[in-house]
Write a protein that binds this DNA or RNA. Structure first.
Lengths: 186, 186
DNA sequence: GTATCCATGTAAATGGTTACATGATTCG
DNA sequence: CGAATCATGTAACCATTTACATGGATAC
Protein backbone atom coordinates (compact mmCIF):
# COMPACT_ATOMS: atom_id res chain seq x y z
CA UNK A 1 0.00 0.00 0.00
CA UNK A 2 1.08 3.53 -0.74
CA UNK A 3 2.53 5.17 2.33
CA UNK A 4 1.00 8.57 1.72
CA UNK A 5 3.54 10.88 3.33
CA UNK A 6 1.99 13.93 1.69
CA UNK A 7 -0.35 16.48 3.14
CA UNK A 8 -3.67 15.01 1.94
CA UNK A 9 -3.73 12.78 4.99
CA UNK A 10 -3.78 15.77 7.34
CA UNK A 11 -6.39 17.58 5.32
CA UNK A 12 -8.69 14.59 5.75
CA UNK A 13 -7.90 14.38 9.47
CA UNK A 14 -8.49 18.10 9.92
CA UNK A 15 -11.92 17.88 8.33
CA UNK A 16 -12.91 14.70 10.17
CA UNK A 17 -11.82 16.34 13.44
CA UNK A 18 -14.89 18.59 13.13
CA UNK A 19 -17.43 15.94 12.25
CA UNK A 20 -17.81 12.57 10.52
CA UNK A 21 -17.88 12.95 6.76
CA UNK A 22 -18.03 11.00 3.51
CA UNK A 23 -15.35 11.28 0.85
CA UNK A 24 -17.84 13.06 -1.34
CA UNK A 25 -18.69 15.72 1.21
CA UNK A 26 -15.02 16.26 1.98
CA UNK A 27 -14.54 17.05 -1.69
CA UNK A 28 -17.50 19.47 -1.66
CA UNK A 29 -16.20 21.24 1.44
CA UNK A 30 -12.78 21.58 -0.11
CA UNK A 31 -14.31 23.10 -3.21
CA UNK A 32 -16.41 25.58 -1.29
CA UNK A 33 -14.13 26.68 1.50
CA UNK A 34 -10.61 25.65 0.67
CA UNK A 35 -10.29 25.97 -3.07
CA UNK A 36 -8.40 29.27 -2.83
CA UNK A 37 -5.49 27.67 -1.03
CA UNK A 38 -5.90 23.92 -1.29
CA UNK A 39 -7.44 21.29 -3.55
CA UNK A 40 -7.71 17.53 -3.67
CA UNK A 41 -9.11 15.19 -6.31
CA UNK A 42 -11.18 12.06 -5.70
CA UNK A 43 -8.14 10.13 -6.84
CA UNK A 44 -6.45 11.37 -3.68
CA UNK A 45 -9.37 11.47 -1.28
CA UNK A 46 -10.74 7.94 -1.45
CA UNK A 47 -7.42 6.09 -1.25
CA UNK A 48 -6.26 8.40 1.55
CA UNK A 49 -9.38 7.71 3.60
CA UNK A 50 -8.72 3.98 3.24
CA UNK A 51 -5.14 4.29 4.45
CA UNK A 52 -6.40 6.39 7.36
CA UNK A 53 -8.57 3.44 8.41
CA UNK A 54 -5.71 1.00 7.81
CA UNK A 55 -3.50 3.11 10.07
CA UNK A 56 -6.15 3.29 12.80
CA UNK A 57 -6.50 7.06 12.42
CA UNK A 58 -10.14 6.85 11.33
CA UNK A 59 -13.01 4.38 11.32
CA UNK A 60 -15.76 4.01 8.74
CA UNK A 61 -19.38 2.98 8.75
CA UNK A 62 -19.24 -0.20 6.70
CA UNK A 63 -20.89 0.06 3.31
CA UNK A 64 -24.39 -1.31 3.97
CA UNK A 65 -25.46 -0.09 7.41
CA UNK A 66 -25.53 3.55 6.33
CA UNK A 67 -28.02 6.27 7.13
CA UNK A 68 -30.00 7.50 4.18
CA UNK A 69 -30.22 4.61 1.76
CA UNK A 70 -27.27 5.68 -0.42
CA UNK A 71 -23.96 3.96 -0.85
CA UNK A 72 -22.36 6.39 1.58
CA UNK A 73 -19.37 5.54 3.73
CA UNK A 74 -19.05 7.87 6.67
CA UNK A 75 -15.59 8.30 8.18
CA UNK A 76 -14.91 9.40 11.75
CA UNK A 77 -11.61 10.33 13.34
CA UNK A 78 -10.18 8.19 16.17
CA UNK A 79 -8.19 9.31 19.19
CA UNK A 80 -5.03 8.16 17.41
CA UNK A 81 -6.11 10.32 14.48
CA UNK A 82 -6.50 13.36 16.72
CA UNK A 83 -3.07 12.75 18.15
CA UNK A 84 -1.56 12.47 14.65
CA UNK A 85 -3.27 15.69 13.60
CA UNK A 86 -2.17 17.54 16.71
CA UNK A 87 1.46 16.41 16.18
CA UNK A 88 1.36 17.66 12.61
CA UNK A 89 -0.08 21.00 13.72
CA UNK A 90 3.09 21.61 15.72
CA UNK A 91 5.39 20.94 12.79
CA UNK A 92 6.75 23.95 10.99
CA UNK A 93 4.77 24.45 7.77
CA UNK A 94 6.77 23.82 4.64
CA UNK A 95 7.69 26.77 2.48
CA UNK A 96 5.17 26.88 -0.33
CA UNK A 97 6.39 26.26 -3.84
CA UNK A 98 4.52 28.60 -6.11
CA UNK A 99 4.13 28.40 -9.84
CA UNK A 100 2.49 31.44 -11.31
CA UNK A 101 2.28 30.90 -15.02
CA UNK A 102 1.30 34.52 -15.56
CA UNK A 103 4.55 35.71 -14.00
CA UNK A 104 6.46 33.38 -16.27
CA UNK A 105 4.72 34.90 -19.27
CA UNK A 106 5.29 38.43 -18.06
CA UNK A 107 8.96 37.73 -17.44
CA UNK A 108 9.31 36.40 -21.00
CA UNK A 109 7.35 39.39 -22.25
CA UNK A 110 9.84 40.33 -24.96
CA UNK A 111 8.72 37.26 -26.91
CA UNK A 112 5.27 38.60 -27.73
CA UNK A 113 3.29 41.78 -28.33
CA UNK A 114 2.22 44.07 -25.48
CA UNK A 115 -1.41 43.44 -26.41
CA UNK A 116 -1.05 39.76 -25.57
CA UNK A 117 0.36 40.55 -22.14
CA UNK A 118 -2.30 43.15 -21.51
CA UNK A 119 -4.97 40.61 -22.42
CA UNK A 120 -3.58 38.15 -19.89
CA UNK A 121 -3.40 40.86 -17.26
CA UNK A 122 -6.99 41.95 -17.89
CA UNK A 123 -8.19 38.39 -17.34
CA UNK A 124 -6.07 38.20 -14.23
CA UNK A 125 -7.45 41.46 -12.84
CA UNK A 126 -11.01 40.30 -13.44
CA UNK A 127 -10.38 36.95 -11.81
CA UNK A 128 -8.78 38.48 -8.74
CA UNK A 129 -11.62 40.96 -8.36
CA UNK A 130 -14.03 38.03 -8.39
CA UNK A 131 -11.95 36.22 -5.81
CA UNK A 132 -11.92 39.24 -3.48
CA UNK A 133 -15.70 39.40 -3.78
CA UNK A 134 -15.98 35.67 -3.05
CA UNK A 135 -13.83 36.04 0.05
CA UNK A 136 -15.85 38.97 1.33
CA UNK A 137 -19.09 37.14 0.71
CA UNK A 138 -17.74 34.14 2.55
CA UNK A 139 -16.67 36.30 5.50
CA UNK A 140 -20.14 37.78 5.72
CA UNK A 141 -21.70 34.33 5.80
CA UNK A 142 -19.37 33.43 8.62
CA UNK A 143 -20.32 36.51 10.61
CA UNK A 144 -23.88 35.16 10.66
CA UNK A 145 -22.68 31.90 12.19
CA UNK A 146 -20.84 33.93 14.77
CA UNK A 147 -24.09 35.62 15.80
CA UNK A 148 -25.46 32.13 16.42
CA UNK A 149 -22.64 31.42 18.83
CA UNK A 150 -20.51 29.31 16.47
CA UNK A 151 -16.84 30.30 16.51
CA UNK A 152 -15.40 30.51 13.01
CA UNK A 153 -12.34 32.60 13.76
CA UNK A 154 -9.98 30.28 11.92
CA UNK A 155 -12.06 29.95 8.76
CA UNK A 156 -12.45 33.70 8.78
CA UNK A 157 -8.70 34.14 8.94
CA UNK A 158 -8.07 32.05 5.86
CA UNK A 159 -10.63 34.08 3.94
CA UNK A 160 -9.01 37.24 5.23
CA UNK A 161 -5.73 36.04 3.78
CA UNK A 162 -7.47 35.63 0.47
CA UNK A 163 -8.74 39.21 0.62
CA UNK A 164 -5.23 40.52 1.29
CA UNK A 165 -3.48 38.45 -1.34
CA UNK A 166 -6.00 38.76 -4.14
CA UNK A 167 -6.25 42.51 -3.63
CA UNK A 168 -2.47 42.70 -3.82
CA UNK A 169 -2.46 40.63 -6.99
CA UNK A 170 -5.09 42.84 -8.53
CA UNK A 171 -3.20 46.01 -7.61
CA UNK A 172 -0.01 44.61 -9.04
CA UNK A 173 -1.72 43.61 -12.28
CA UNK A 174 -3.23 47.08 -12.71
CA UNK A 175 0.18 48.65 -12.19
CA UNK A 176 1.84 46.15 -14.51
CA UNK A 177 -0.79 46.76 -17.16
CA UNK A 178 -0.14 50.49 -16.99
CA UNK A 179 3.64 50.10 -17.24
CA UNK A 180 3.35 47.75 -20.20
CA UNK A 181 0.92 49.92 -22.12
CA UNK A 182 3.03 53.06 -21.57
CA UNK A 183 6.06 51.14 -22.77
CA UNK A 184 4.13 50.06 -25.87
CA UNK A 185 3.26 53.66 -26.73
CA UNK A 186 6.86 54.81 -27.09
CA UNK B 1 10.50 9.25 -24.83
CA UNK B 2 8.53 11.34 -22.40
CA UNK B 3 6.35 13.85 -24.19
CA UNK B 4 6.85 16.66 -21.70
CA UNK B 5 3.61 18.53 -22.00
CA UNK B 6 4.28 20.52 -18.84
CA UNK B 7 5.56 24.03 -18.45
CA UNK B 8 9.25 23.25 -17.93
CA UNK B 9 9.70 23.16 -21.65
CA UNK B 10 8.61 26.77 -22.02
CA UNK B 11 10.71 27.91 -19.11
CA UNK B 12 13.77 26.52 -20.85
CA UNK B 13 12.74 28.10 -24.14
CA UNK B 14 12.12 31.44 -22.47
CA UNK B 15 15.58 31.46 -20.94
CA UNK B 16 17.32 30.28 -24.10
CA UNK B 17 15.49 32.99 -26.05
CA UNK B 18 17.71 35.53 -24.29
CA UNK B 19 21.03 33.77 -24.74
CA UNK B 20 22.58 30.32 -25.09
CA UNK B 21 22.90 28.62 -21.70
CA UNK B 22 23.94 25.38 -20.04
CA UNK B 23 21.56 23.34 -17.89
CA UNK B 24 23.57 24.33 -14.88
CA UNK B 25 23.31 28.05 -15.49
CA UNK B 26 19.60 27.75 -16.19
CA UNK B 27 19.24 26.24 -12.75
CA UNK B 28 21.28 29.08 -11.19
CA UNK B 29 19.22 31.72 -12.94
CA UNK B 30 16.02 30.10 -11.80
CA UNK B 31 17.28 30.07 -8.23
CA UNK B 32 18.32 33.70 -8.30
CA UNK B 33 15.56 35.38 -10.24
CA UNK B 34 12.64 33.04 -10.46
CA UNK B 35 12.57 31.17 -7.18
CA UNK B 36 9.73 33.30 -5.81
CA UNK B 37 7.33 32.11 -8.46
CA UNK B 38 8.89 29.17 -10.21
CA UNK B 39 11.37 26.37 -9.61
CA UNK B 40 12.81 23.44 -11.48
CA UNK B 41 15.10 20.62 -10.39
CA UNK B 42 17.98 19.13 -12.38
CA UNK B 43 15.82 16.06 -12.75
CA UNK B 44 13.54 18.23 -14.90
CA UNK B 45 16.05 20.49 -16.57
CA UNK B 46 18.46 18.05 -18.19
CA UNK B 47 15.87 15.69 -19.67
CA UNK B 48 13.78 18.64 -20.89
CA UNK B 49 16.77 20.17 -22.68
CA UNK B 50 17.33 16.86 -24.44
CA UNK B 51 13.75 16.64 -25.65
CA UNK B 52 14.01 20.25 -26.82
CA UNK B 53 16.87 19.18 -29.08
CA UNK B 54 14.99 16.05 -30.17
CA UNK B 55 12.03 18.25 -31.15
CA UNK B 56 14.22 20.67 -33.06
CA UNK B 57 13.42 23.53 -30.69
CA UNK B 58 17.03 23.90 -29.55
CA UNK B 59 20.50 22.84 -30.60
CA UNK B 60 23.45 22.01 -28.38
CA UNK B 61 27.20 22.33 -28.61
CA UNK B 62 28.26 18.70 -28.58
CA UNK B 63 30.08 17.61 -25.47
CA UNK B 64 33.74 18.01 -26.42
CA UNK B 65 34.01 21.14 -28.56
CA UNK B 66 33.01 23.40 -25.68
CA UNK B 67 34.33 26.78 -24.69
CA UNK B 68 36.15 26.85 -21.39
CA UNK B 69 37.54 23.38 -20.86
CA UNK B 70 34.68 22.12 -18.73
CA UNK B 71 32.17 19.44 -19.59
CA UNK B 72 29.66 22.10 -20.49
CA UNK B 73 26.88 21.64 -23.00
CA UNK B 74 25.58 24.95 -24.27
CA UNK B 75 22.03 25.03 -25.61
CA UNK B 76 20.70 27.60 -28.08
CA UNK B 77 17.16 28.16 -29.25
CA UNK B 78 16.21 27.57 -32.89
CA UNK B 79 13.70 29.45 -35.02
CA UNK B 80 11.22 26.63 -34.44
CA UNK B 81 11.86 27.08 -30.72
CA UNK B 82 11.07 30.79 -30.91
CA UNK B 83 7.88 30.02 -32.77
CA UNK B 84 6.86 27.45 -30.13
CA UNK B 85 7.57 29.95 -27.36
CA UNK B 86 5.68 32.72 -29.07
CA UNK B 87 2.65 30.44 -29.57
CA UNK B 88 2.68 29.52 -25.90
CA UNK B 89 2.91 33.17 -24.89
CA UNK B 90 -0.48 33.75 -26.53
CA UNK B 91 -2.18 30.94 -24.65
CA UNK B 92 -4.22 31.91 -21.65
CA UNK B 93 -2.20 31.17 -18.51
CA UNK B 94 -3.59 28.36 -16.40
CA UNK B 95 -5.19 29.24 -13.10
CA UNK B 96 -2.61 28.59 -10.45
CA UNK B 97 -3.23 25.83 -7.97
CA UNK B 98 -1.94 26.99 -4.64
CA UNK B 99 -1.18 24.94 -1.57
CA UNK B 100 -0.44 27.06 1.44
CA UNK B 101 0.29 24.72 4.29
CA UNK B 102 0.16 27.56 6.78
CA UNK B 103 -3.44 28.33 5.81
CA UNK B 104 -4.32 24.70 6.29
CA UNK B 105 -2.86 24.81 9.77
CA UNK B 106 -4.60 28.06 10.62
CA UNK B 107 -7.91 26.71 9.38
CA UNK B 108 -7.50 23.64 11.61
CA UNK B 109 -6.45 25.91 14.45
CA UNK B 110 -8.83 24.43 17.01
CA UNK B 111 -6.65 21.31 17.08
CA UNK B 112 -3.72 22.99 18.79
CA UNK B 113 -2.77 25.76 21.21
CA UNK B 114 -2.74 29.43 20.16
CA UNK B 115 0.97 29.57 20.93
CA UNK B 116 1.69 27.02 18.22
CA UNK B 117 -0.20 29.04 15.64
CA UNK B 118 1.45 32.25 16.77
CA UNK B 119 4.84 30.59 16.41
CA UNK B 120 4.06 29.59 12.83
CA UNK B 121 2.80 33.08 12.08
CA UNK B 122 5.93 34.70 13.53
CA UNK B 123 8.11 32.58 11.26
CA UNK B 124 5.87 33.45 8.36
CA UNK B 125 6.05 37.18 9.08
CA UNK B 126 9.83 37.05 9.29
CA UNK B 127 10.11 35.11 6.06
CA UNK B 128 7.85 37.46 4.17
CA UNK B 129 9.72 40.49 5.44
CA UNK B 130 12.92 38.93 4.12
CA UNK B 131 11.28 38.26 0.80
CA UNK B 132 10.09 41.85 0.46
CA UNK B 133 13.65 42.99 1.15
CA UNK B 134 14.99 40.54 -1.44
CA UNK B 135 12.56 41.83 -4.03
CA UNK B 136 13.43 45.45 -3.34
CA UNK B 137 17.15 44.69 -3.49
CA UNK B 138 16.61 42.91 -6.78
CA UNK B 139 14.66 45.87 -8.19
CA UNK B 140 17.47 48.23 -7.24
CA UNK B 141 19.99 46.04 -9.03
CA UNK B 142 17.81 46.14 -12.09
CA UNK B 143 17.57 49.91 -12.00
CA UNK B 144 21.34 49.99 -12.45
CA UNK B 145 21.08 47.88 -15.58
CA UNK B 146 18.45 50.27 -16.81
CA UNK B 147 20.92 53.17 -16.46
CA UNK B 148 23.24 51.22 -18.73
CA UNK B 149 20.56 51.09 -21.40
CA UNK B 150 19.43 47.51 -20.78
CA UNK B 151 15.66 47.15 -20.62
CA UNK B 152 14.56 44.99 -17.70
CA UNK B 153 10.93 46.07 -17.50
CA UNK B 154 9.60 42.54 -17.44
CA UNK B 155 11.96 41.22 -14.79
CA UNK B 156 11.18 44.28 -12.74
CA UNK B 157 7.47 43.56 -12.99
CA UNK B 158 7.81 40.07 -11.59
CA UNK B 159 9.78 41.42 -8.65
CA UNK B 160 7.15 44.09 -8.17
CA UNK B 161 4.54 41.36 -7.93
CA UNK B 162 6.64 39.79 -5.19
CA UNK B 163 6.71 43.07 -3.29
CA UNK B 164 2.93 43.38 -3.47
CA UNK B 165 2.15 39.79 -2.55
CA UNK B 166 4.72 39.31 0.21
CA UNK B 167 3.73 42.61 1.83
CA UNK B 168 0.11 41.48 1.74
CA UNK B 169 1.05 38.14 3.27
CA UNK B 170 2.99 39.86 6.01
CA UNK B 171 0.13 42.26 6.77
CA UNK B 172 -2.31 39.40 6.91
CA UNK B 173 -0.09 37.39 9.23
CA UNK B 174 0.30 40.35 11.61
CA UNK B 175 -3.45 40.82 11.71
CA UNK B 176 -4.05 37.08 12.15
CA UNK B 177 -1.50 36.95 14.95
CA UNK B 178 -3.29 39.76 16.75
CA UNK B 179 -6.71 38.14 16.39
CA UNK B 180 -5.43 34.80 17.62
CA UNK B 181 -3.64 36.22 20.63
CA UNK B 182 -6.66 38.32 21.65
CA UNK B 183 -8.82 35.24 21.35
CA UNK B 184 -6.39 33.31 23.56
CA UNK B 185 -6.62 35.94 26.29
CA UNK B 186 -10.36 35.54 26.87
C1' DG C 1 45.86 17.90 -1.43
C1' DT C 2 41.45 18.62 -0.23
C1' DA C 3 37.27 21.12 -0.21
C1' DT C 4 34.20 23.50 -2.98
C1' DC C 5 32.08 24.53 -6.88
C1' DC C 6 31.14 23.56 -11.81
C1' DA C 7 28.71 20.38 -14.53
C1' DT C 8 25.93 16.48 -16.25
C1' DG C 9 23.10 12.97 -15.66
C1' DT C 10 19.57 9.06 -14.19
C1' DA C 11 16.59 5.68 -11.53
C1' DA C 12 13.30 5.25 -8.30
C1' DA C 13 9.95 7.00 -5.61
C1' DT C 14 6.34 10.18 -4.72
C1' DG C 15 2.60 13.06 -5.58
C1' DG C 16 -1.27 14.23 -8.07
C1' DT C 17 -4.74 14.49 -11.95
C1' DT C 18 -7.55 12.59 -15.49
C1' DA C 19 -10.46 9.65 -17.43
C1' DC C 20 -13.17 6.17 -16.91
C1' DA C 21 -16.62 2.74 -14.79
C1' DT C 22 -20.53 1.92 -11.90
C1' DG C 23 -24.92 2.48 -9.94
C1' DA C 24 -28.45 4.59 -6.72
C1' DT C 25 -31.48 8.60 -5.86
C1' DT C 26 -33.90 12.72 -6.60
C1' DC C 27 -36.24 16.18 -9.23
C1' DG C 28 -38.86 17.85 -12.90
C1' DC D 1 -38.49 8.52 -17.98
C1' DG D 2 -34.53 11.23 -18.42
C1' DA D 3 -31.25 14.43 -16.48
C1' DA D 4 -28.71 15.87 -12.72
C1' DT D 5 -26.65 14.85 -8.61
C1' DC D 6 -24.97 11.76 -5.05
C1' DA D 7 -21.48 8.54 -4.27
C1' DT D 8 -17.47 5.40 -4.66
C1' DG D 9 -13.66 3.81 -6.79
C1' DT D 10 -9.33 2.68 -9.74
C1' DA D 11 -5.81 2.43 -13.48
C1' DA D 12 -3.02 4.97 -16.26
C1' DC D 13 -0.65 8.73 -16.88
C1' DC D 14 1.90 12.79 -15.99
C1' DA D 15 4.90 15.74 -13.30
C1' DT D 16 8.29 16.35 -10.03
C1' DT D 17 11.67 15.51 -6.40
C1' DT D 18 15.25 12.93 -4.26
C1' DA D 19 19.12 10.54 -3.92
C1' DC D 20 22.73 9.02 -6.03
C1' DA D 21 26.87 8.64 -9.30
C1' DT D 22 30.59 10.79 -11.77
C1' DG D 23 34.46 13.67 -12.66
C1' DG D 24 36.98 18.06 -13.93
C1' DA D 25 38.44 22.80 -12.34
C1' DT D 26 39.46 26.17 -9.02
C1' DA D 27 40.76 28.17 -4.62
C1' DC D 28 43.05 27.85 -0.39
Amino acid sequence: MKENTGKSKYVMLGMLARMPLTGYTIKKWLENEYSHFWQESYGQIYPTLKTLVAQGLAVCSDNGEHGNGRGQIVYSITEAGRKELSDWMREKPEIEKLRYEILLKISFGENTESEVLIGHLDDFIKRNEELVKDMNRYMEQITQFKDQGIDCTYSRLTALCGVHVYSAMKDWAIEARKIISEKGEL
